[in-house]
């Protein structure tokens, strides 16, 4: 799956360019609030509980300054991706102990055809290996500029 396909699962309403939270619990809550206000999803508590459970399994902050909170839940009917950015950085229990600045939240229904959710995760992780790209994403002025950088345009 390429990045253009992945970006079909997000939208400008699902882009939080300036996350305010600085700790993990508050950041997850703020991002779930963003998911609910940017879509027709109705059940924030269920999504938050699922993402918290996933973090208990092991932190999803696996890239340098990047986290990928993710999981499946009955609360959504299609793969939905929220992108968030924190200028101050969030303590997200990253492996390297450094603050997390970029978040890609992937929530998928219990069954999704062709495992789009795992493939999207893999495509994002692969693309974000590029340190120059990560710096660009940190400075992108808006959603369009963010997506253009991600696409390599």
């Amino acid at each position: 799956m390429d990045i253009v396909e992945v970006l079909k699962h997000t939208s400008p309403a699902l882009f939080l360019p300036d996350l305010q939270a600085t700790d993990k619990a508050a950041a997850l809550a703020e991002m779930v609030e963003g998911l609910v206000s940017g879509t027709s999803i109705h059940n924030p508590d269920t999504i938050l509980q699922m993402l918290q459970s996933r973090e208990h399994l092991g932190s999803t902050a696996v890239g340098p300054g990047i986290a990928f909170p993710h999981g499946r839940t009955l609360a959504v009917q299609r793969l939905t991706i929220l992108i968030a950015r924190s200028h101050a950085g969030v303590d997200f229990d990253s492996e390297d102990g450094q603050p997390t600045h970029l978040f890609f939240v992937l929530v998928a229904p219990p069954q999704d055809s062709g495992h789009q959710y795992i493939k999207s995760l893999a495509a994002l992780i692969d693309r974000l290996q590029d340190a120059g790209l990560r710096a660009q994403l940190g400075e992108a002025a808006d959603y369009d500029a963010f997506c253009a950088a991600l696409k390599g345009a």
């Binding site: 269920t46 399994l57 999981g71 219990p110």
Partner: peptide
């Protein structure tokens, strides 16, 4: 609500 959370957890 608890059943939905339980099923999400089982799937995870």
């Amino acid at each position: 609500q608890l059943l939905v959370a339980l099923q999400d957890m089982d799937q995870m």
